[in-house]
């Protein structure tokens, strides 16, 4: 028999007994980041391959929507920071070993590219907005109009850069988690591709929802079908990887194979988020209907969020350590006034 207990009480909030350092904010950020990456890739692809006419929504409107999505995502990331006043510190330092640092800098580069692509699509995508912007006092004529003009000129090369950055952004959302050796459930190189494909899939789903024409809708329905199949394969490989990993990984994967996150993972993510859309989109291979495609797309988006949520939440619960307080650790909340303000010394 082996008994391992703590002789002192370890009750650091959100570190013990289970790490819950990252909540919905990070899951949302990873989801929206992936979605934005998907939108960037597809809009770049539509422009670069001269499909502006066949996929007008993707080419003209998606960049602006993606820009807003990414801004919201960064907003939730900001919400998660415990020391918000220091947020600017992300941009006084580049740590090549920190995915978080890479992500911060990728975002900085993605934003102007996204913005320029959005401007380039503006005259066709949002003509009224474009004209309003052009008529802005002071900067309208002097800045906005030339910018829109310039972005239109460099749209082609910009689109190619956008595809590259979109892929980087999509992979980064996965690498952010898989870079942590300390969390066995995250420690798989498959997380990068998985999150990228999921990001592309959710991007495609949003394009289906906003598609300007039946043709555009059908195009992205078919693309999404392929992505879902790849994503399922990657999820399958990820589980295989975990089951054949080290002892900690083998143990951790049981959180989605019978453990706390099983229902959310299998029914929510795999079932509703992948299998149902897969079925619906396969059925629509020849001819898609707006309603069914819409339902499938919403499910893909929900599934995309659930994937991030399950991964973020579950991964934190896996650790190299296993502390067992012999005394009731919640009694220390009395000292901390219930964990909200532990600063007062007595």
């Amino acid at each position: 028999m082996r008994e391992e207990v703590l002789a002192s009480v370890l009750a650091n909030p959100r570190v013990e007994p289970h790490l819950a350092i990252w909540g919905w904010q990070i899951a949302t950020y990873l989801f929206l980041g992936g979605l934005a990456a998907g939108l960037l890739v597809f809009s770049g692809w539509a422009v670069a391959t001269r499909r502006v006419g066949r996929a007008p929504f993707a080419a003209n409107r998606a960049p602006l929507i993606g820009l807003v999505v990414l801004a919201i995502g960064m907003g939730t990331l900001f919400l998660d920071l415990e020391r918000k006043i220091n947020v600017w510190r992300f941009y006084t330092h580049l740590n090549p070993t920190s995915p978080m640092s890479w992500g911060a800098w990728i975002l900085i580069v993605v934003f102007p590219v996204f913005a320029l692509l959005a401007l380039a699509g503006l005259p066709d995508g949002f003509p009224r907005l474009a004209s309003k912007l052009r008529e802005l006092p002071v900067i309208g004529k002097s800045l906005v109009a030339p910018l829109i003009g310039m972005s239109g000129v460099i749209r082609g090369p910009l689109a190619i850069v956008g595809i590259g950055l979109g892929v980087a952004l999509g992979i980064y959302t996965g690498v952010l988690l898989s870079g942590f050796n300390a969390r066995p459930f995250w420690h798989s190189a498959l997380l990068g591709p998985l999150f990228l494909v999921s990001g592309l899939s959710t991007g495609a789903a949003l394009l289906i929802l906003g598609a300007a024409t039946a043709e555009e809708r059908h195009l992205f329905s078919r693309i999404d079908l392929g992505l879902i199949i790849v994503e399922m394969a990657l999820v399958f490989l990820f589980l295989i990887d975990m089951l054949n990993g080290d002892a900690l990984q083998q143990h951790s994967v049981f959180l989605v194979l019978g453990g706390d996150a099983t229902e959310l993972f299998w029914i929510g993510f795999i079932g509703l988020g992948l299998a149902v859309p897969l079925t619906l989109e396969t059925a629509m291979w020849q001819r898609s209907t707006a309603l069914i495609a819409g339902v499938a797309s919403v499910l893909v988006l929900v599934g995309g969020f659930l994937l991030r949520d399950v991964m973020v939440t579950t991964g934190q619960q896996t650790s190299w350590t296993s502390f067992h307080n012999q005394f009731n650790a919640s009694l220390l909340a009395k000292l901390r006034t219930d964990g909200e303000n532990p600063n007062g010394r007595f």
Binding site: V15, E82, R83, P99, A182, R183, S319
Partner: peptide
């Protein structure tokens, strides 16, 4: 910034907010 990446990165769970 309190981003908590280091907490996630510590295999000994030795960090706290």
């Amino acid at each position: 910034t309190g981003c908590k990446a280091c907490i996630a990165a510590c295999p000994y769970d030795a960090r706290l907010i």
